[in-house]
Amino acid sequence: MQWRRPSSSPPKKAKVTQSSGKVMLSCSWDCDGIIMTDYMEKGKKVTGEYYSGLLKRLRSELARSRRGKLRSGVMLLHDNAPAHRARQLRQLNGAASKFFHILHTRRIYLLFPNLKNPIRGPRFEDITDAITAVEAWFQAQSDTFYSQGLLKVKDRWKKCITQLGDYVEE
């Protein structure tokens, strides 16, 4: 509301365009770079079934692109969301899977905060434009970006352990 004379014209309003929405990215990476990305379809939810299917695809991708890693075992670091603790995941994590799951409750990843900055400003026409920008950002990172990021995670783990799980500043 604003004060105006009865004879004055109504105020101009900016036209708001509809957002193309959000899309959830699940990303698997190691010191050599991105292993696999998965962009969840709009309207779907992360369930135990969805997440175990994602891990099966990750296992296949690891066997294809990172020869020998599955034999020595793979550590997965993820939060303690219900889907990550689901029955399907426990069944998948049998002796043959070679996946070792580490749950955490604090943000210690360094990939996503770095990713958010360059894609925060531009307005994308649709989801495919946003996905293209994210994939281009992944490709543009230096050879040492991912390995340095994992070393920082290791340092943050040590801080978390010495502080007995209390909050760790960046």
Results as ranks from 00 to 15, higher is better:
residue 10 P to C: 03
residue 49 E to Q: 07
residue 7 S to P: 00
residue 62 L to M: 14
residue 87 R to H: 14
residue 141 Q to C: 06
residue 104 H to M: 14
residue 47 T to V: 09
residue 162 T to L: 10
residue 103 L to N: 14
residue 58 L to Y: 15
residue 39 Y to I: 01
residue 107 R to S: 13
residue 3 W to Y: 11
residue 83 A to H: 12
residue 41 E to N: 05
residue 134 V to L: 01
residue 23 V to Q: 01
residue 90 R to K: 14
residue 10 P to E: 09
residue 136 A to Y: 07
residue 129 D to L: 04
residue 93 N to P: 00
residue 123 R to E: 07
residue 132 T to I: 00
residue 27 C to D: 05
residue 67 R to Q: 12
residue 140 A to K: 13
residue 21 G to H: 02
residue 163 Q to E: 12
residue 88 Q to G: 01
residue 7 S to H: 12
residue 29 W to V: 08
residue 35 I to E: 08
residue 71 R to V: 14
residue 31 C to P: 06
residue 152 K to S: 08
residue 18 Q to R: 10
residue 68 G to L: 08
residue 144 T to D: 09
residue 159 K to E: 08
residue 111 L to R: 02
residue 163 Q to D: 12
residue 114 N to H: 13
residue 28 S to W: 13
residue 12 K to L: 14
residue 65 S to N: 09
residue 102 I to P: 00
residue 102 I to D: 05
residue 106 R to Q: 07
residue 170 E to P: 00
residue 39 Y to V: 01
residue 4 R to E: 08
residue 50 Y to V: 15
residue 148 Q to G: 01
residue 133 A to W: 04
residue 5 R to Q: 08
residue 148 Q to I: 02
residue 70 L to R: 14
residue 54 L to F: 15
residue 94 G to V: 01
residue 51 Y to Q: 02
residue 125 E to L: 10
residue 90 R to V: 13
residue 115 L to C: 07
residue 28 S to F: 15
residue 99 F to P: 06
residue 31 C to D: 12
residue 104 H to F: 13
residue 10 P to S: 06
residue 122 P to F: 04
residue 8 S to D: 15
residue 116 K to P: 03
residue 151 L to Y: 07
residue 83 A to Q: 06
residue 164 L to N: 13
residue 104 H to E: 10
residue 121 G to R: 06
residue 120 R to V: 06
residue 32 D to G: 11
residue 27 C to A: 13
residue 24 M to W: 00
residue 170 E to S: 12
residue 157 W to T: 13
residue 12 K to T: 15
